[in-house]
Structures are given as structure tokens and as C-alpha cells.
């Protein structure tokens, strides 16, 4: 399965991954090669096989909705790159007005 430059760029955009031209070229080659190995799975007939998302039986896990002590605001914001007045600061995503 050989990928095109356009596919690599499209997937990088989906993944929110900035790539240099060199990285893009190298990834096109490496991912094509890895997918070549992976495509071997097509030889297995799985038409009647259900998928397994995870392997142990677990019922839906719910807990009672009870307020409990949690991290303080200071602890939560301690690692935030930019914060202001108890909020994490982030670029505006909508135009002002």
C-alpha cells in the first residue's frame, strides 16, 4: 500500500501534526513500507468473526454521583502554559464582534 504525499498531508492534518517537508517524505516511505507488512492480515478470513475491543468481561462501571474533594484550582492550573483569573488561557476560535 503506497501512500501519496497528499494522503500523508491529509492524515497529518487530521492528527494535528505539523511536519517538515523532510518528515513528510520520510513518513510517506516508512508508512507505505509498514502498511505493506500489515496488509498480510488480508490473507486471514475474518468475515464471520466478531471484533474484540478489549479482552476481559467488564459490565458497565458506574459509581454514585457524589461530590468529593478533588484537586485544588492551583494544582490543576500549575501545569497550564497560560492561565488567567483561574482559567486556562487559549486563543480565540471565533471572530470578535
Amino acid at each position: 500500500m503506497a501512500l501519496t504525499d497528499e494522503q500523508v498531508e491529509y492524515v497529518a492534518t487530521l492528527a494535528r501534526l505539523g511536519l517538515s517537508d523532510e518528515e513528510r517524505a520520510r513518513l510517506r516511505e516508512q508508512l507505505s513500507s509498514i502498511l505493506g507488512h500489515i496488509d498480510r492480515l488480508r490473507e486471514l478470513d475474518t468475515s464471520a468473526i466478531p471484533p474484540t475491543a478489549q479482552v476481559i468481561p467488564l459490565d458497565p462501571v458506574l459509581r454514585d454521583d457524589i461530590a468529593r474533594p478533588s484537586l485544588t484550582l492551583e494544582q490543576v492550573l500549575a501545569n497550564a502554559p497560560r492561565s488567567e483569573n483561574g482559567f486556562i488561557r487559549v486563543n480565540a476560535i471565533l471572530d470578535e464582534e
Binding site: 500489515i38 492480515l41 486471514l44 475474518t46 468473526i49 466478531p50 471484533p51 474484540t52 479482552v55
Partner: peptide, 14 residues
């Protein structure tokens, strides 16, 4: 073709 296929093969391996 990839993710669901792999989950099915996981069923077979298990």
C-alpha cells in the same frame, strides 16, 4: 480495512 480487521484478528488470537 485496518482497525476493525485487527480487532477481529485479536478475537482469533485470544
Amino acid at each position: 480495512a485496518y482497525y476493525v480487521k485487527a480487532q477481529k484478528v485479536r478475537t482469533l488470537i485470544k
